[in-house]
Design a protein around this nucleic acid. Structure first.
Length: 118
DNA sequence: CACCTGACTGAAT
DNA sequence: AATTCAGCCAGGT
């Protein structure tokens, strides 16, 4: 059962393009809850069952795959990212900033984002 | 019903 | 520069 906040988190995560990643903090900030980054992570945990949510594209602010332990197998999260063209070494996304997709940067370009904030 | 914990982060010390 | 603290939400004990 997802709260309104969780629901928004899921919608944002689903918008992350292939080959891109974003962070818990960016999502939280985008939703106007800068300090709820932790809850974003918790939302991902809660959404663990929903395969439509590309949780592997969400990493922490350093580009580290903090949530990989929650994926089946020890390297699935990394494999998924690498299959999208993102190189990962020791749980750390390489060229992290160049792969970073910040939803806030797309506020003007992505009309459907308005639906999320609603 | 009170307390603890967790895929985090920015500010304060 | 490194470490600690507080804040956020939901679910479990």
């Amino acid at each position: 059962m997802a709260s309104e906040f969780f629901d928004k988190v899921y919608k944002v995560v689903r918008l992350i393009p292939e080959g891109k990643v974003t962070t818990y903090g960016h999502i939280a900030r985008f939703l106007g809850e800068t300090r709820s980054a932790r809850v974003v992570g918790y939302a991902m945990n809660a959404s663990h069952n929903d395969s439509s949510i590309p949780a592997h594209r969400v990493v922490n602010r350093s580009g580290v795959l903090t949530g990989k332990h929650f994926f089946t197998g020890s390297t699935l999260m990394q494999d998924l990212l690498e299959s999208e063209g993102i190189k990962v070494i020791e749980d750390q996304v390489q060229s992290f900033e160049s792969h970073l997709w910040n939803p806030i940067d797309h506020l003007d370009q992505e009309p459907f984002i308005d639906n999320i904030i609603g």
